[in-house]
Write a protein that binds this DNA or RNA. Sequence first.
DNA 1: CCGTAACCTTACCCATCAGTAAACTTACTC
DNA 2: GAGTAAGTTTACTGATGGGTAAGGTTACGG
Lengths: 206, 206
Amino acid sequence: MTGVANPKRLPRAVREQQMLDAAVRVFADRGYHGASMDEVAELAGVSKPMVYLYLGSKEDLFGACIRREAARLMERITSAVHDAATIECRLVSGFEAFFGYVAEHKDSWNVLYHRARALGPPFADEVDRARHDIIDAVTGLVDQRGASAGEAGALSHALVGAADALAEWASRTGEPATVTTARLMNLVWIGIERQIDGASWRPASS
Amino acid sequence: MTGVANPKRLPRAVREQQMLDAAVRVFADRGYHGASMDEVAELAGVSKPMVYLYLGSKEDLFGACIRREAARLMERITSAVHDAATIECRLVSGFEAFFGYVAEHKDSWNVLYHRARALGPPFADEVDRARHDIIDAVTGLVDQRGASAGEAGALSHALVGAADALAEWASRTGEPATVTTARLMNLVWIGIERQIDGASWRPASS
DNA sequence: CCGTAACCTTACCCATCAGTAAACTTACTC
DNA sequence: GAGTAAGTTTACTGATGGGTAAGGTTACGG
């Protein structure tokens, strides 16, 4: 019983959330295959059959974790971007929200980015769909003038990838989200503007 | 016996490479915990005790895979960058080499990027060290004038992260490495130049 | 104060899989 | 063509861990 003290009987909805909290943590620490249902149950302060009763199989549990955490992340970003006028503002708000989320919910980010993405079709697809929702939103920002087909999509992927890497960096150095956002904007904003305007870099030498 | 036909006895050095080939594939497909030594042995066309005799434990085997694949990737990039004069040329050559490698050795990239990175200290450190060698090289390129402390480091992380994401994109669309490289340069080159010159973007609103 | 339903546990089964013991077979040397 | 070392296998063990059966305990409505 090293889990949080749960001396009392609790309603199902509460227990389920506790189990999901524990599961996110264990999956974040050990990965899908490395995690054991016993450990999840223990950390949740509950016996194993409870987990199976409420959340189903290990796959079901992992799926539930992914859905909950992805929804939280998405909600944070979309609500931040919601009331920003210009493209630049939306990008800045989105990045700040993202970096803030990763800093405050490392386990959640770990499960989504490191663990789920590394898995086969059942789960990687789920999280990739969420990722693509973000990328598509970015693409929409960058491609308002309907530029060349793949251009904007590739750019969005690169942008999100850069943000991922910077999030990791920032969570190690502990710098505030606004600073990290400035770094990223500093690197890519002119390139994005150029994409919006249709200009492009040409290879000079090889 | 679904593995490659190995009807004959082979010298140790050859068998070891076959085993590593098989291991890289299985680890790429299933992840460290999901992979079984039986499957590795079968795919290598050999029985399990051979794997243990030649490569040691599962951890040893995974470590050997990581080291071999990381060395291959590093060697390809460094040799490509070697004879390029300007910063711009070095970046372009490095990116092209990287995208080319990922396209041609998906399993290798998968193990290094998705599988090993998602693991705990023993392996993640190993591959992170290789990753940092690359990032440091990029930092050296970008920070030749000795700019502000963290700036160049953060930029390199973002750059490598963007490259990772684009590599994934490129491996899905199948576009040639030169095109992907142009996309990336198009996005970040001006920002990099600005970093080299010491200029910086400043948040305007929000 | 009794029933019943929601909450929760102990104790087990069995498949998978890392790792090994012991022996067999081919090739190469002297 | 004996001797031996390298290459290789079959057949096992022991632990881990997903999943379940059967039953115990608290709350709460009637």
